[in-house]
Amino acid sequence: MNIFRLAGDMTHLFSVLVLLLKIHTIKSCAGISLKTQELYAIVFATRYLDIFTNHISPYNTIMKLIFLGSSFSIVWYMRYHKIVRRSYDKDQDTFRHYILILPCLILALLINEKFTFKEVMWTFSLYLEAVAILPQLVLLQRTRNIDNLTGQYVFLLGAYRALYIVNWIYRYFTEDHFVHWITWVCGLVQTLLCADFFYYYFQSWKNNMKLQLPA
């Protein structure tokens, strides 16, 4: 484990914590896309199928449990919690899941590292994770007025994959380990999708102004 991987994991963890903080303490999920949250729940459920069979380290197992538990509980809060669900922007969050899920599944069946159930599911989770942020970005664009926690959530979520890319480069040069090109492409796509958001995030930060996306 190198510093970039750890920083990436921590950024990812913080993004989830920021979101849970918003939901738990403010009892609001305004500006958060349930579609994106449901996609992440699917991503973790299909990626961590090996959680009990492929033991890497206690760290890995605990983090997997955290991501699985948090993603499903966020979905539960947004759908069923009697106060939280009232703040959900249902009418604005209209992105349809299957437009992303179906192509990712087909692509995973066609392009994968190995044609086994676990590998296809693992590849599917990578493809889906790369695009899962899209409903959230669409919602941000529509909501216009983005609160601080929501902005930080999306920023941390985007930064996590960017740090993973640095980690892959580092591992490529320092270890015998290299990640598959599928992982590279997905990681790059995922980061690039956030690039536009990053730009406006830094602009608002630099000018000390409230984050707003252009129409």
Binding site: R5, D9, H12, D50, N54, I56, N60, M63, K64, F67, E113, W122, Y164, N167, D176, H177, F178, V179, H180, T183
Partner: peptide, 10 residues
Amino acid sequence: KGGSEPHDEL
């Protein structure tokens, strides 16, 4: 060994 398996990242 090389390669990305077993998947040791999150």
